[in-house]
Deep mutational scan, measured.
Amino acid sequence: MADQLTEEQIAEFKEAFSLFDKDGDGTITTKELGTVMRSLGQNPTEAELQDMINEVDADGNGTIDFPEFLTMMARKMKDTDSEEEIREAFRVFDKDGNGYISAAELRHVMTNLGEKLTDEEVDEMIREADIDGDGQVNYEEFVQMMTAK
């Protein structure tokens, strides 16, 4: 299944994987998964984290390695993001709930994920998604960005 991913997608997933893999040992533990999910405003229980890991832990060693992570991402993409997942993601970014993602809100979430971005990089990300040019990202623009192939 992971063989249907483009090189660009694999590179993006590698970057995402390293955000989860806090200690850089090449595997994601339940603790690391929990840290990232909490930084995104989720509050999973230990059991939920274990279930999430077990779902993709092909070799049964209790952690997720990069090939397992790729399989999980490929699977998720095949079920292409349901509207509800996209709306949920939008809410994570839209901290003040005004229906727009500002540069400050984007920077806040990315920083929580451990991504240190310059102001230019954040502005560039907003510009790429900002179709109507108002300097922020509304829900429609967010959907376009998330579903762009």
Results as ranks from 00 to 15, higher is better:
residue 133 G to Y: 15
residue 73 M to K: 14
residue 146 M to S: 04
residue 37 M to R: 08
residue 45 T to C: 02
residue 48 E to D: 14
residue 131 I to A: 10
residue 99 G to S: 14
residue 138 N to A: 08
residue 109 V to I: 10
residue 95 K to E: 11
residue 63 T to S: 06
residue 138 N to D: 12
residue 47 A to D: 09
residue 64 I to H: 06
residue 54 N to H: 08
residue 85 E to A: 08
residue 71 T to E: 03
residue 140 E to C: 06
residue 7 E to A: 06
residue 141 E to C: 06
residue 83 E to T: 01
residue 75 R to N: 01
residue 22 K to I: 12
residue 129 A to L: 04
residue 99 G to Q: 02
residue 50 Q to P: 03
residue 106 L to S: 03
residue 148 A to N: 09
residue 19 L to I: 05
residue 129 A to H: 05
residue 82 S to K: 06
residue 12 E to Q: 13
residue 146 M to T: 11
residue 65 D to G: 13
residue 26 G to W: 10
residue 51 D to T: 06
residue 66 F to T: 01
residue 88 E to D: 12
residue 69 F to E: 05
residue 113 L to E: 03
residue 85 E to Q: 04
residue 75 R to H: 08
residue 22 K to R: 14
residue 44 P to A: 13
residue 114 G to A: 05
residue 109 V to K: 05
residue 136 Q to F: 01
residue 18 S to M: 07
residue 27 T to I: 11
residue 96 D to K: 15
residue 128 E to L: 05
residue 134 D to P: 09
residue 52 M to Y: 07
residue 102 S to N: 14
residue 46 E to N: 00
residue 95 K to P: 01
residue 149 K to H: 08
residue 133 G to V: 10
residue 76 K to W: 14
residue 37 M to Q: 10
residue 49 L to N: 02
residue 124 E to W: 10
residue 59 D to L: 12
residue 25 D to G: 12
residue 145 M to R: 02
residue 139 Y to K: 04
residue 128 E to Y: 02
residue 115 E to T: 03
residue 23 D to R: 08
residue 149 K to N: 12
residue 93 F to I: 03
residue 10 I to T: 11
residue 84 E to D: 13
residue 101 I to T: 09
residue 115 E to K: 11
residue 129 A to R: 06
residue 32 E to I: 08
residue 58 A to E: 14
residue 80 T to R: 08
residue 37 M to F: 00
residue 118 T to V: 12
residue 103 A to K: 10
residue 102 S to Y: 00
residue 77 M to F: 06
residue 119 D to H: 09
residue 149 K to T: 07
residue 114 G to N: 14
residue 128 E to W: 09
residue 90 F to I: 08
residue 102 S to L: 09
residue 137 V to P: 11
residue 17 F to Q: 15
residue 19 L to S: 06
residue 93 F to K: 07
residue 90 F to L: 08
residue 34 G to C: 13
residue 61 N to L: 03
residue 21 D to M: 07
residue 58 A to R: 01
residue 53 I to V: 13
residue 3 D to I: 00
residue 47 A to T: 13
residue 89 A to K: 02
residue 69 F to N: 02
residue 146 M to E: 05
residue 36 V to T: 15
residue 21 D to P: 15
residue 105 E to N: 09
residue 124 E to F: 06
residue 59 D to I: 05
residue 23 D to V: 12
residue 101 I to P: 01
residue 3 D to C: 04
residue 6 T to A: 13
residue 141 E to R: 07
residue 67 P to S: 11
residue 92 V to E: 06
residue 3 D to H: 06
residue 132 D to C: 05
residue 38 R to M: 13
residue 119 D to V: 09
residue 52 M to F: 01
residue 40 L to H: 15
residue 75 R to E: 14
residue 147 T to H: 08
residue 104 A to Y: 04
residue 60 G to I: 07
residue 53 I to E: 01
residue 52 M to I: 12
residue 5 L to R: 08
residue 144 Q to L: 14
residue 96 D to A: 00
residue 74 A to L: 04
residue 118 T to N: 08
residue 124 E to Y: 02
residue 11 A to P: 02
residue 133 G to R: 11
residue 135 G to K: 06
residue 33 L to Y: 05
residue 8 E to W: 10
residue 133 G to N: 10
residue 39 S to K: 04
residue 113 L to C: 12
residue 66 F to C: 14
residue 35 T to W: 11
residue 61 N to T: 03
residue 137 V to G: 04
residue 4 Q to W: 00
residue 69 F to R: 01
residue 19 L to Y: 06
residue 107 R to D: 03
residue 125 M to T: 09
residue 4 Q to F: 06
residue 8 E to N: 15
residue 7 E to H: 03
residue 113 L to K: 03
residue 44 P to C: 07
residue 26 G to A: 14
residue 28 I to A: 03
residue 39 S to G: 06
residue 21 D to G: 12
residue 25 D to N: 13
residue 133 G to Q: 10
residue 65 D to P: 14
residue 27 T to L: 02
residue 53 I to N: 04
residue 126 I to W: 06
residue 47 A to L: 07
residue 87 R to M: 05
residue 16 A to C: 02
residue 86 I to Y: 06
residue 34 G to A: 04
residue 6 T to E: 08
residue 6 T to N: 00
residue 138 N to P: 15
residue 86 I to N: 09
residue 33 L to S: 09
residue 124 E to A: 13
residue 111 T to F: 06
residue 45 T to P: 05
residue 67 P to I: 09
residue 103 A to Y: 00
residue 98 N to P: 03
residue 65 D to K: 07
residue 110 M to A: 12
residue 82 S to A: 15
residue 84 E to L: 09
residue 8 E to F: 08
residue 6 T to G: 06
residue 142 F to I: 02
residue 9 Q to E: 09
residue 131 I to H: 14
residue 95 K to A: 00
residue 41 G to H: 02
residue 131 I to S: 08
residue 97 G to E: 13
residue 45 T to V: 07
residue 113 L to S: 08
residue 103 A to N: 14
residue 74 A to C: 03
residue 15 E to A: 07
residue 36 V to F: 13
residue 53 I to R: 13
residue 6 T to P: 13
residue 70 L to T: 01
residue 54 N to L: 00
residue 55 E to K: 11
residue 102 S to P: 08
residue 71 T to P: 14
residue 32 E to F: 08
residue 62 G to W: 07
residue 123 D to H: 04
residue 87 R to I: 02
residue 61 N to F: 03
residue 56 V to L: 12
residue 57 D to A: 08
residue 127 R to D: 03
residue 43 N to C: 07
residue 42 Q to G: 07
residue 113 L to R: 01
residue 69 F to C: 02
residue 96 D to N: 13
residue 9 Q to M: 00
residue 121 E to M: 01
residue 120 E to F: 14
residue 91 R to F: 05
residue 101 I to Q: 02
residue 64 I to E: 04
residue 80 T to K: 09
residue 99 G to R: 10
residue 10 I to E: 09
residue 133 G to M: 10
residue 2 A to N: 15
residue 107 R to F: 03
residue 25 D to H: 07
residue 98 N to H: 10
residue 113 L to P: 04
residue 118 T to G: 01
residue 55 E to W: 13
residue 148 A to L: 05
residue 131 I to M: 13
residue 14 K to L: 00
residue 20 F to G: 05
residue 131 I to N: 14
residue 131 I to Q: 07
residue 133 G to L: 02
residue 97 G to W: 01
residue 92 V to L: 13
residue 81 D to M: 06
residue 61 N to D: 11
residue 117 L to D: 01
residue 63 T to K: 08
residue 63 T to L: 06
residue 26 G to R: 15
residue 137 V to D: 03
residue 41 G to M: 15
residue 142 F to R: 05
residue 148 A to Y: 05
residue 32 E to K: 12
residue 2 A to L: 09
residue 68 E to P: 03
residue 139 Y to P: 05
residue 139 Y to F: 13
residue 12 E to I: 02
residue 60 G to Y: 11
residue 40 L to P: 08
residue 61 N to C: 06
residue 129 A to P: 13
residue 63 T to D: 03
residue 128 E to S: 00
residue 112 N to T: 12
residue 13 F to T: 00
residue 74 A to P: 09
residue 50 Q to G: 05
residue 29 T to Y: 04
residue 103 A to H: 06
residue 87 R to C: 12
residue 148 A to W: 14
residue 134 D to K: 00
residue 81 D to P: 01
residue 79 D to M: 09
residue 41 G to Y: 00
residue 141 E to D: 11
residue 49 L to F: 12
residue 53 I to A: 15
residue 123 D to W: 08
residue 127 R to C: 01
residue 92 V to S: 04
residue 126 I to H: 09
residue 75 R to T: 02
residue 33 L to R: 03
residue 95 K to C: 15
residue 115 E to Y: 15
residue 132 D to N: 10
residue 36 V to M: 10
residue 89 A to R: 00
residue 70 L to K: 13
residue 77 M to V: 12
residue 58 A to H: 09
residue 96 D to Q: 15
residue 135 G to C: 12
residue 95 K to S: 15
residue 2 A to C: 06
residue 92 V to W: 08
residue 126 I to L: 11
residue 89 A to H: 04
residue 16 A to S: 10
residue 28 I to M: 15
residue 52 M to S: 07
residue 8 E to Q: 01
residue 93 F to W: 09
residue 52 M to C: 08
residue 65 D to R: 01
residue 131 I to E: 00
